[in-house]
């Protein structure tokens, strides 16, 4: 309870300090909004040319796209402290964090909360709403909750990846960009239904970086499509929980990293 109160104070101060540079803040937010639109233009071009991808039409792909980008926008906003973690170590801010009677995770999250990712979030939302209007989905309370759940689950999954990436930097800073490409590459890959990929790549997205659990399975359930790659059709209803499990798993790896840091001091 107390930690939540502290997090909201961090949140408030982050907004206040970012609003000190109002013009830059607004420009960046608009920039992010437009940039993601240009990315989306790439998807549109391909559907214009090919019509469909493995039976999925543009509007259906837009649903996948919206869910992934909204989830990732939230991640970028609240886990920025982990994303830039090597800098935190280099500047000694992480030592400062260790000197305070709070968990490292809470303090790193609070250290930097990026509001301008609202640009990507809004773009994802616009695409998602457009897709919902275009598609004839029979909405039920369950499906609505599942949609929200898959965005939240996706957020936790991406956040877990970012935490793992930060953890790795306790051992090697130089390989970071590679891990970073898994995160961004994951966003790219999950923009499309994973069934379009070759089986070996699908397996990666189901078992290793389980993006399918927060995107493909729930989105297929929402679309009312029953072909879930030989998985039970019930999986879509609870698979977003894997995102949260993945995040909890990352946090336990993180703790090992912190222990390593305090015992080597490097």
């Amino acid at each position: 309870m107390d930690s939540i109160k502290l997090y909201f104070k961090y949140f408030r101060f982050n907004i206040e300090s970012q609003l000190q540079y109002k013009t830059s803040f607004i420009m960046m937010s608009i920039g992010h909004f437009l940039i993601t639109f240009i990315e989306f233009l790439g998807v549109w071009v391909l559907f214009e040319r090919f019509g469909n991808i493995q039976g999925f039409i543009f509007e259906e792909a837009a649903l996948f796209y919206g869910i992934v980008h909204m989830a990732f926008a939230i991640t970028e906003g609240w886990t920025r402290g982990f994303d830039t973690f090597p800098k935190l170590v280099r500047l000694g801010d992480f030592d400062r964090i260790l000197l305070r009677p709070r968990t490292t995770v809470l303090q790193i999250l609070g250290h930097d909360i990026q509001m301008m990712r609202i640009g990507r979030f809004m773009q994802g939302l616009v695409v998602l709403i457009w897709a919902i209007f275009k598609l004839n989905i029979e909405w039920t309370l369950g499906k609505t909750l599942l949609l929200i759940g898959s965005i939240i689950g996706g957020n936790f999954l991406f956040s877990g990846l970012i935490v793992l990436q930060a953890t790795l930097s306790f051992w090697s800073v130089q390989s970071l960009e590679i891990v970073n490409s898994f995160t961004y590459g994951g966003v790219q890959a999950a923009q499309y239904p994973i069934s379009i990929y070759k089986p070996w790549f699908r397996k990666i997205l189901i078992y290793i970086i389980p993006l399918a659990t927060v995107n493909y399975f729930p989105a297929m359930t929402i679309l009312g499509k029953s072909d879930l790659l030989s998985f039970s059709k019930w999986i879509g209803w609870f698979s977003p929980l894997f995102g949260i499990l993945f995040f909890i798993f990352s946090l336990s790896i993180w703790r090992i990293g912190v222990k390593h840091y305090t015992s080597t001091g490097s």
């Binding site: 391909l46 090919f50 019509g51 469909n52 991808i53 379009i196 990929y197 070759k198 790549f201």
Partner: peptide
């Protein structure tokens, strides 16, 4: 891989 998906659909 995305392009492969598109090319094999049309």
């Amino acid at each position: 891989m995305v392009l492969y998906g598109f090319y094999s659909s049309s």
